[in-house]
């Protein structure tokens, strides 16, 4: 059996009495675009937070390319090749677009404090290379904003692109994307979709939380559907979305819908339009 890129087994996390994630198993082979779906509050972001080490799992195990990362700190997990973006964009205030991406290349740099102070030839070359690499990454993600602009002043879509570029600057093997197309129009979402495929061709494994079903069906090879912390279905996106449990989780029960319709009619009262 080939090694899995991300192997999540029996993951559970409770906040107080609420089980945010309940015995979830998600296994993603390398070079796969895997979607995590589910209504709001299903525990999707909590799963990503546990994979990137933001929060500790109560039970269960997470392996990244065979390494157990369950109890590691976020920076240790990042050094094993996991990068991520955020549902609520988290850029560094005060940094320019280019600086933001270069900041992501921390582990790609070897310069020392002394080298920086003395401005050694290595330091000069590295600074130049880092700027060029960051510019390339910004091109790749399709960010057309001026590189010397403050990242926080960009349009919503460009901020998301800068965040992806910053994550890519860490040279990740696994990229976790939390709603990468939130706030984007159809054309922009399509661009993100094509970027995902391009990154996959470069050897990355991508796990994304996404609400745009058209994008999911077009670009995700497999999906896991969650509801109330538990796994509902997994497999090909079209198949998953046709399952009754999944439809129920998103739209409510058919009987509920009928009851709500009756209530609406009743409230409008006789003679209402």
């Amino acid at each position: 059996m080939t090694e899995l890129a991300v192997d999540i087994v029996g993951l559970t996390k409770a906040f107080g009495g609420l089980k945010a994630v309940d015995d979830v198993t998600i296994q993603v082979p390398p070079r796969r675009i895997h979607g995590i779906l589910g209504p709001n509050g299903a525990g999707k972001t909590t799963v990503l937070n546990m994979v990137s080490g933001f929060i500790q799992a109560d039970t269960g195990r997470i392996d990244v390319f065979g390494d157990d990362v369950t109890r590691l700190k976020p920076f240790q997990i990042a050094r094993r090749g996991v990068a991520r973006t955020y549902q609520n964009i988290r850029l560094f205030p005060g940094l320019t677009v280019l600086e933001t991406v270069v900041a992501g290349a921390y582990m790609q740099r070897s310069s020392t404090i002394a080298g920086a102070i003395l401005m050694s030839p290595t330091e000069r070359r590295e600074r130049r290379e880092m700027r060029e690499r960051a510019a390339d990454l910004l091109d790749k993600v399709g960010c057309r904003a001026p590189h010397s602009a403050l990242a926080e002043t960009l349009s919503y879509g460009d901020q998301r692109r800068v965040e992806i570029a910053r994550a890519l600057a860490t040279s990740p093997k696994v990229l976790l994307l939390d709603e990468p197309t939130a706030g984007m129009n159809d054309v922009e979402s399509e661009e993100v979709g094509r970027l995902l495929v391009e990154l996959r061709e470069l050897g990355l494994t991508l796990i994304l939380i996404e609400h745009n079903m058209r994008l999911v069906e077009e670009f995700c090879e497999t999906v896991s559907v969650m509801n109330s912390g538990a796994l509902l279905a997994e497999g090909a996106p079209t198949w998953c979305l046709e399952q009754d449990e999944v439809k129920e989780a998103y739209f409510g029960k058919r009987s509920d819908a009928a009851r709500i319709a009756t209530l609406r009619r009743a409230r409008r009262g006789p003679g209402g339009s």
Binding site: S52, G53, F54, K73, P74, F75, I77, A78, R79, V82, A83, R84, Y86, R90, F92, P93, G94, L95, A103, G104, Y106, M107, R166, A167, A169, T170
Partner: peptide, 11 residues
């Protein structure tokens, strides 16, 4: 600016 995000950049 954001130690948590910095950590996910391997810092």
């Amino acid at each position: 600016e954001d130690p948590a995000v910095a950590e996910t950049l391997a810092i």
